[in-house]
Write a protein that binds this DNA or RNA. Structure first.
Length: 873
RNA sequence: GCGGGUAUGGUGGAAUUGGUAGACACGCUAGACUUAGGAUCUAGUGCCGUGAGGCGUGGGGGUUCGACUCCCUCUACCCGCACCA
């Protein structure tokens, strides 16, 4: 194979050759792993290819995918175009299989492995070639169900498929072009979100089934993706939901080929059933038929077994300044060469302006004397972040080595990373790339292990805890007014029609007796509404009292004001509109809401909410848009907010800055509180209620050493047995909990220990010193300071980490819970060495137990030594 | 739809091997000290019930002397992927 390569060359594989002979994806996928790695070893992992970038003309920059939202830049909303550029790619696909099987060897969460498996997306099946009727070309398809080839009643190409133009018949041309235009008009987002809508068009062309031999129509449709498989499928409507929906929609044939009568609960993915209507494979089980068809395809030379992967080669170029420059120069022919070893490492030239060039080239292109330093043209793209992040841990093993990236001695000693703590957000980026990279190093014999990260723990994501306030809306004002009107008069009717015919209109409240109509609207609306129905009102003999919603809210707590207005109006007085209440909003405490639909939920800055109670003064200061707020507070006089767990985001007003917390509580306290929140792998909202508890602990711990600020209290007295027991219990548990990454319970243990030592009034060095070392990983600053105060010269981090001494933990009696029928009824202390019989006898005689067993037959007494007693009656 | 996960007091959570459910904190209640308190200390705090007592780990069922823990089943929510041939 290498010989073949030497001879024929390949532009995609050999970076240092400009020969243009091609080498197909199919050739590559048919090679064994050995052949692939040989090629990669000899011809490098990286190659040049055309890749697309998100170019934003207005911003003059290339954007990452997540900086593009709905086809425009997230920042500014400027148009973004896909721009083709020749870039470096990394042949990660060569490692697809090993990346997949390697997952079985690592101790990672199933979730993370699942994401990687899914991303690699292995599927086993067959490639088959369908001869075009009346053309020389064939259409390559991939299928996981070659057994259903007799049920293929049509073919579908992706709208981007190369052959469409060629095969479309003149009669269908217009329709096909119209369809392609429709597809082109749809954004990636639309195509993805609108999957139920069935669209497609017939090309007019036919293909010949390589096994069955019949002619089937070729369609194009959006549901076939250009990037998966070969961008074309044989459609088997009987055994594929999407094909079936398509066939039904366009009235295409459906031929049943799998009899699933024996498997009533199986779905398509189970690959079970008996073949029917399928020529030579009739009567075979599906799994058997798959093999038989693949064999037949190979015999006929029209297909072969294929393993397909979703994984794509990684784009290894960035048009940014910050990144490792490539050690590559181009000759006059444009062929890439490695720079001479003597010139390594290639360093970034200084630059002030980090924007790309006007035509979208990387910023380094602007530094001409660097680019053409030795006459040849340097590569101006830089490497992506994962170039360095894929192997930095190897460099850490031997950071001062000037000759190699890591010495064999060092790497054989350290091997790989024992424990990696990181988030799932790197699942298909960094964590996949470094595995690829490591395997490449392994193949080169540079590292002794195939997997870089043996064990990986995902820390949970700390989300934002949003707070909400409730602003009363129009409905609220209506309900309120209605209620208050009923108190003064029963003659007001809600939603009364005034006038007749076309002139008729509805007012919110009206009293026929005194001919008063009341319209409730926002001030803004009322100003426009005022004279609208004047004539109709006059004809009907009504006069109108406009009341603004703002006014109702403003006088919520002195509603008589509104009532008086109504009374005045009832007496025929003209009551003018009050414009001073503009911008008045009424906020209802969460626990005072009666009708959820009468209030609008709004985000409020979490930094002015304490334990879900809104700080009203800060609120009024921070939100000028609610200038004159009125509140409905609860019985305690508090405004209570509701809350929700969401991602932190500025628009949600739920972003908390850890710097503020560190400023207020100190880094030790912040660090410990993060640990105390709960299990490390569990995500949860960021919530600072409770940090006081950790702060309290640190103060208590400090108080074991110091009285007030400065009175040192630690003595050299010998610690008592009780004190040592407390200390060693803590040492034991903290050590065990660290082993299982249960840092929250470590913090609890420290708290318990400090509480108990305080009760024992213990200020003895013998007891406290080991605790300081134990605490060092949790509260490093405090521990280091106390460690020095205790008279130690070296840093606390060089001290031996304490381990417990069993002699302090020996118990001479154990408290047994004594249950009757599994319910705990009494507690009793027994000596450690009490015999089962003694325990049973004593337990049965206990007064507290007698009560429950009196007059009942004792069926069984279970005594579990050192645990419990259960009496079954 | 597929894959992974979670569910325990008012709140965060603990219970390591099937053996005292609610450790440790927050919050809350009462009290002490204080000019003051977002300080400190003391006591109480799963729910129902005046009480005896009963109930209780998302719902239902099972195994067991004994289930937060094991099995079956259902529900809700979270995360990831998704027209993947």
């Amino acid at each position: 194979m290498i010989a073949k390569f030497e001879k024929e060359g390949n532009q995609n594989v050999n970076a240092s050759s400009n020969q243009k002979d091609t080498f197909t994806a199919a050739d590559w996928s048919n090679m064994s792993n050995k052949e692939k790695s040989d090629i990669l070893m000899n011809y490098r992992l990286a190659y040049r290819s055309i890749a697309y970038v998100n170019w934003c003309e207005a911003l003059g920059t290339i954007l990452a995918n997540d900086e593009v939202k709905d086809g425009v830049s997230e920042r500014g909303g400027f148009p973004v175009e896909r721009k083709a550029m020749e870039q470096w790619s990394l042949r990660t696909t060569a490692y697809a299989e090993r990346l997949l099987t390697g997952l079985d060897q690592v101790d990672w969460s199933e979730a993370l492995k699942g994401i990687q498996r899914n991303w690699i997306g292995r599927s086993e099946g067959a490639t088959a070639f369908f001869q075009l009727d009346g053309h020389d070309e064939q259409i390559e398809i991939f299928t996981t169900r070659p057994d259903t080839i007799f049920g293929a009643t049509f073919m579908v190409l992706a709208p981007e498929h190369d052959l469409i133009d060629k095969i479309t018949t003149p009669e269908q041309k217009a329709k096909i072009n119209a369809y392609l235009e429709y597809v082109g008009s749809r954004s990636e987002l639309q195509r993805q979100s609108d999957v139920k809508n069935i669209t497609g068009e017939f090309t007019g062309a036919y293909a010949i089934n390589p096994i069955k031999g019949d002619k089937i129509p070729i369609w194009i449709a959006e549901y076939v993706l250009k990037d998966y498989g070969s961008g074309a499928i044989m459609a088997v409507p009987s055994d594929d939901e999407r094909d079936q929906a398509f066939a039904r929609h366009f009235g295409l044939d459906i031929v049943s080929v799998v009899d699933k009568a024996d498997y009533p609960n199986a779905d398509v993915h189970d690959k079970s059933g008996i073949m029917i209507n399928s020529g030579f494979i009739n009567g075979m089980e599906v799994k058997e038929a798959i093999q038989a068809v693949i064999q037949k395809l190979e015999e006929l030379g029209v297909g072969h077994r294929t393993i397909n992967y979703k994984l794509r080669d990684a784009n290894f170029s960035r048009q940014r300044y910050w990144g490792e420059p490539f050690p590559v120069v181009y000759d006059t022919e444009g062929v890439a060469h490695l720079v001479d070893e003597a010139q390594l490492p290639v360093e970034l030239p200084p630059l002030d302006d980090f924007k790309p060039t006007k035509d979208g080239k990387a910023p380094l292109a602007k530094v001409e004397d660097w680019v053409y330093a030795d006459g040849r043209r340097r590569e101006v793209d830089t490497m992506p972040g994962f170039a360095g992040s894929s192997w930095y841990f190897l460099r850490y093993m031997d950071p001062d080595n000037d000759d190699e990236f890591v010495s064999q001695k060092a790497v054989n000693y350290w091997q790989d990373v024992d424990l990696y703590i990181g988030g799932t957000e790197h699942a298909v980026g960094h964590l996949l790339y470094s595995r690829t990279w490591h395997k490449f190093f392994y193949d080169l014999g540079l590292v002794p292990t195939e997997e870089p990260f043996k064990k990986l723990v995902n820390q949970g994501m700390i989300g934002g805890r949003s707070n909400f306030i409730y602003r009363a809306n129009e409905k609220f004002a209506e309900q309120l007014l209605e209620k208050e009107l009923k108190k003064i008069s029963t003659t007001f009717e809600k939603d009364t029609i005034i006038g007749e015919g076309e002139e008729a209109f509805k007012v919110d409240f009206a009293c026929d007796k005194i001919k008063l109509a009341i319209e409730l609207k926002s001030l803004y609306d009322l100003e426009r509404y005022k004279d609208k129905h004047k004539q109709t009102l006059n004809e009907a003999g009504y006069h109108l009292l406009p009341i603004s919603i703002e006014e109702v809210f403003a006088h919520y707590h002195e509603f008589d004001f509104i009532i008086n207005k109504i009374k005045k109006a009832s007496n025929g007085e003209i009551v003018p509109l009050n414009r001073n209440v503009r911008d008045t909003a009424l906020f209802v405490s969460k626990d005072m809401i009666e009708d959820r639909s009468a209030v609008t939920k709004l985000y409020v800055d979490v930094n002015i909410v304490y334990n879900d109670v809104l700080d009203l003064a800060k609120f009024e200061k921070s939100r000028t848009d609610f200038a004159n707020p009125v509140y409905i507070l609860n019985d305690n006089g508090d405004y209570v907010c509701s809350h929700a767990f969401e991602k932190m985001s500025k628009s949600k007003f739920n972003v908390v800055n850890p710097d503020d917390m560190v400023e207020e509580y100190g880094a030790d306290c912040f660090r410990m509180y993060e640990m105390f929140l709960g299990p490390i792998e569990q995500g949860k909202p960021w919530n600072t209620e409770g940090i006081n508890g950790v702060q309290g602990f640190l103060k208590k711990f400090w108080a074991l050493f110091y009285h007030h600020q400065d009175a040192w209290m630690v003595t050299n007295e010998k610690a008592t047995k009780d004190e040592m027991k407390v200390v060693h219990t803590c040492i034991k548990r903290v050590n065990e909990d660290i082993e299982r990454f249960s840092f929250n319970t470590c913090v609890s243990e420290f708290m318990k220990c400090a509480n108990e030592l305080r009760k024992l009034n213990c200020h003895k060095k013998e007891a406290l010193e080991p605790l300081v070392v134990l605490l060092a990983p949790f509260a490093p600053h405090l521990a280091e300071e106390l460690w020095h105060e205790l008279g130690n010269e070296q840093t606390v981090f060089d001290a031996d980490f304490p381990s417990h001494d069993e002699q302090y933990l020996v118990e001479n009696s154990i408290t047994y819970p004594i249950s009757v029928n599994g319910k705990k009824r009494a507690l009793f202390d027994f000596p450690v060495d009490a015999s089962k019989d003694d325990i049973e006898k004593t337990a049965l005689e206990l007064e507290a137990i007698q009560k429950y067993i009196e007059g009942k037959t004792i069926r069984k007494v279970i005594v579990v030594p050192k645990k419990m007693v259960n009496i079954v009656v």
